[in-house]
Design a protein around this nucleic acid. Structure first.
Lengths: 233, 233
DNA sequence: AAGTGGTCTAGACCACTCC
DNA sequence: GAGTGGTCTAGACCACTTG
């Protein structure tokens, strides 16, 4: 058994996927398993990987379907709204949480404030064409931006609000990208199946004077989104 | 069952991990399953996610151990060797393949050559501190770099060879990041367990005149590596 | 030879969607 | 209620590492 059975199944499923085309419905797992002569577990393992790869999409109670290609988001300091519109998609945001909390040690250091200082915690689900693709959690100092709650439309662009109404000038920032497995809560907010690999972006932005503006934790569905970075020599 | 059992197990395992510390050995899966009162499948599901998250590392025939933190690689046009050394790690490369092949339509377009033209295919496993962390496949036009085989030390830095010996001046490039599941072959080359989420980087670099230099497909172990990008306003 | 993680089976029940 | 994907069990065998 040099190649695991579920991988052989996966390879054969790719042919089925290509024959069906975007949006096509796969036969039920139980039927596929029987047709391929494997157990349901093995079939599900193959399907699970194809879902992670962005080739399939499963909907409980409905079936499994051939997915549309992944979105590509710029890895840059631009507005989510504008970036998505530029690619012909319809952006939307939904506020999950907008609170003030006390900064823990890590957050305080990243924002250059004292531990325990008040910070905004703004959590929003990002949509593209009506589908949830990301969960963005932003932390900002209340002391530094005392009018934020009055000025910001929480379903609108934070970037636009900061540069426009609050006169913030962005300087260099830093972004970390890694893969993680979503928690059940995160998966539910993103309407994703559990145990799906996600892309976690941890962003740290500063103004032109080098003072921290915001700390952002963005979790994107790895099956639906990719990122583009422009390299400069 | 609002929270799946394997997630409850995962949460409890995190406590075990923190108590053990880096390099600590977990009890065998079968023992853990019995202790937690769950089936081995459920335990493995929890462990699988912790491996994907980079918290655990499993070695067949040996056991499961608490992992060391992920490496962070710059998402920029710099030498792999230098980037790793700058972080106090020991880089190494191992050549898997160095051949000349005929370009297919997609590759030909990316390299701005004719379909069927000869291209180098250089495949190398990247190591950090003796551990395989990535698989890099580079495609370059033979016609454009006819002396590459004589000039390049395939275990050395391609970037250095191009800028140094061949006088190439890099211009703007583009990089795409997404998550994928490794194939059995890729997993084996990276000594990773199957079905592990990987970070796939697709890089397209051009010289100062905008001509394509190379197309690179880099597959990094998602459990061991993350990436850093610097954002400019 | 013993013990470990890796793969796979057969079968059960749950949660959700649609009729 | 019927059918779908999602979770979980108990048990088997394989592949690998170490003594």
């Amino acid at each position: 058994m040099s190649e695991p059975l579920h991988f052989v199944v996966k390879t054969r499923l790719v042919e089925v996927i290509e024959r069906l085309g975007e949006g096509g419905a796969l036969p039920p797992e139980r039927v596929l398993a029987k047709d391929f002569g494997v157990s349901r577990w093995t079939m599900r393992q193959a399907i699970r990987e194809l879902i992670a790869d962005g080739r399939l999409r499963a909907r409980q109670g409905q079936g499994t379907f051939v997915a549309t290609p992944k979105l590509v988001q710029p890895l840059a300091l631009v507005s989510y709204t504008e970036a998505l519109r530029a690619q012909g998609h319809t952006p939307a945001r939904e506020v999950v949480k907008f609170e003030e909390i006390a900064a823990d040690d890590v957050l305080a250091e990243q924002l250059a404030i004292a531990s325990g200082d008040r910070v905004y915690e703004l959590e929003r689900v990002l949509f593209a064409d009506g589908q949830p693709i990301g969960l963005e959690t932003t932390y900002m100092s209340v002391q530094r931006f005392p009018t934020l709650r009055e000025v910001l439309d929480p379903t609108g662009s934070l970037y636009r609000c900061l540069t426009g109404q609050l006169g913030v000038r962005f300087g260099e920032g830093e972004e970390l990208v890694e893969t993680v497995i979503a928690t059940p809560r995160e998966a539910e907010l993103l309407k994703a199946t559990q145990s799906l690999p996600m892309l976690l972006l941890h962003r740290n932005t500063r103004d032109a004077d080098g003072h921290p503006i915001e700390v952002v934790r963005s979790l994107y569905r790895g099956d639906r989104v990719g990122f583009r970075a422009t390299l400069r020599p």
